[in-house]
Every structure is written in structure tokens, then in C-alpha cells.
């Protein structure tokens, strides 16, 4: 089974040379720490920076330099700042090649829910609806089950949707899955996790074809 860092490491393997990438809040943010050697990518944060660097050293924080998670960051050489309309022009105009974000639920047709629990929690969608509606390549990073142990990979989402039919790939603590028109296709197992365990944690249709390899991290 993977921890959050393991999920981030596995997603980092998906990065390709020359890509502009938007990382959501939480696990996705960690992906930036594990860029494979020789892969040149640039990170976009929707509040208005391309070329986002690591967290600043203690004492060098700048209140005017944050990411979309409101964390203090740094700007790499070649970075650029822009306004919110320009930022979402990059996103809506499909100039960003990969979006990685978290989710509360994903359905087997690629719907995603991650912004609201009616009557309990309303944080808002932030930039997530714009991102999922336009990105060609969306990877969801999340735990396979919620805190109550219930599956987050469903036949149909129960929570208000963020986007419809948009998720292509999911990396969880248990598996890597692809969204197909027949259901969640199991691509890889996390180290030490059996197909049966993944099946038991997946409420939606799980497609397993042949031997499912274990992830190599």
C-alpha cells in the first residue's frame, strides 16, 4: 500500500518532457518533489505563476508570492506572473498539458466530485471546474477509500459534481486505474496489494485483464 508520498512518486512518472503542469492542493502538490531525472516540466499555479519553484528557505518567505493553496513559494529563473484571466486562458485554452487534482469521489465514466458536501461542507470549487472542463489529461490523486472505509471509486458519484466524463487516470494508495467506457481498468497494483483487495475497495465496475503488474517506484 502506498502513502501520500508514494502516490505522488507514481504520478511523477507520468510527467513528460516539455509539459506545463497544474498541480492541485494536497497530494498533487507533492508531485513536484519527484520529477524524474532528465524531464523538464514547468508548474503553473492558477493564482498567477508559471515556473513555480520549491518552498522558500525559512526567513525568505514573501507574502506576495504564493501558490493556489496559499502556500509561500519561490519563482524559478524564467518564471512569469500574470492575472487570473490570463491564467485561466492558459487552462481553458488547453495550453497546460496535465492537471493533477484530488477528489472525494470519481465515477467509472470519469465524473469527479471534490467541492461540496451538501449541508456539511462547502469550500467552493476554486479553479477545479475550469481545470477539469478543459484539461485534455487529468490524473486524480486520492486515497482509494474515505475515512469511513467506503469506496471513492463509484458507479455513480453521490456528491455534487465538479465535472462530467473528464477523469482519464486515477492513482490511489492501492492502484493505478484508467477510466474506460466499460469501467475502471486496473493497470497496476501498489506494492503488496492484491487484485482482490483492490476489487473489495472498488464499488464501480473493475476491469482486470491478465496479470496485473505491481508498480515500480
Amino acid at each position: 500500500m502506498l502513502d501520500k508520498i508514494g502516490i505522488a512518486k507514481r504520478i511523477a512518472q507520468e510527467l513528460q518532457n516539455g509539459w506545463y503542469v497544474n498541480l492541485g492542493i494536497g497530494i498533487p502538490t507533492l508531485v513536484a518533489n519527484y520529477i524524474p531525472e532528465g524531464v523538464d516540466v514547468e508548474f503553473q499555479s492558477e493564482n498567477g505563476i508559471l515556473g513555480m519553484g520549491p518552498f522558500p528557505f525559512d526567513g525568505e518567505e514573501d507574502a506576495d508570492l504564493i501558490n493556489a493553496g496559499k502556500q509561500t513559494i519561490t519563482a524559478l529563473p524564467g518564471a512569469v506572473f500574470f492575472d487570473s484571466a490570463m491564467s485561466f486562458a492558459m487552462i481553458r485554452g488547453q495550453h497546460v498539458q496535465l492537471t493533477v487534482l484530488g477528489a472525494m469521489e470519481v465515477s467509472q465514466n470519469g465524473d469527479i466530485a471534490n467541492w461540496k458536501i451538501p449541508g456539511k461542507m462547502v469550500k467552493g470549487m476554486g479553479g477545479a471546474m475550469d481545470l477539469v472542463a478543459s484539461a485534455e489529461n487529468i490524473i486524480v490523486a486520492m486515497m482509494h477509500t474515505n475515512r469511513k472505509g467506503e469506496s471513492k471509486l463509484l458507479k455513480k458519484c453521490s456528491l455534487p459534481l465538479t465535472g462530467v466524463g473528464c477523469v482519464k487516470k486515477i492513482v490511489t494508495n492501492l492502484a493505478v486505474l484508467e477510466v474506460t467506457n466499460k469501467g475502471f481498468k486496473l493497470l497496476e497494483r501498489a506494492p503488496g496489494v492484491s487484485v482482490e483487495e483492490i476489487q473489495n475497495a472498488t464499488e464501480g465496475t473493475l476491469i482486470t485483464e491478465g496479470d496485473i503488474p505491481e508498480m515500480v517506484l
Partner: peptide, 10 residues
Amino acid sequence: KRIEQRTVRT
């Protein structure tokens, strides 16, 4: 200029 999430590395 309050900072909401002060994140640093050592």
C-alpha cells in the same frame, strides 16, 4: 500582508 500558509524548507 498576512501569510495564510507559511511553508518553508530548511
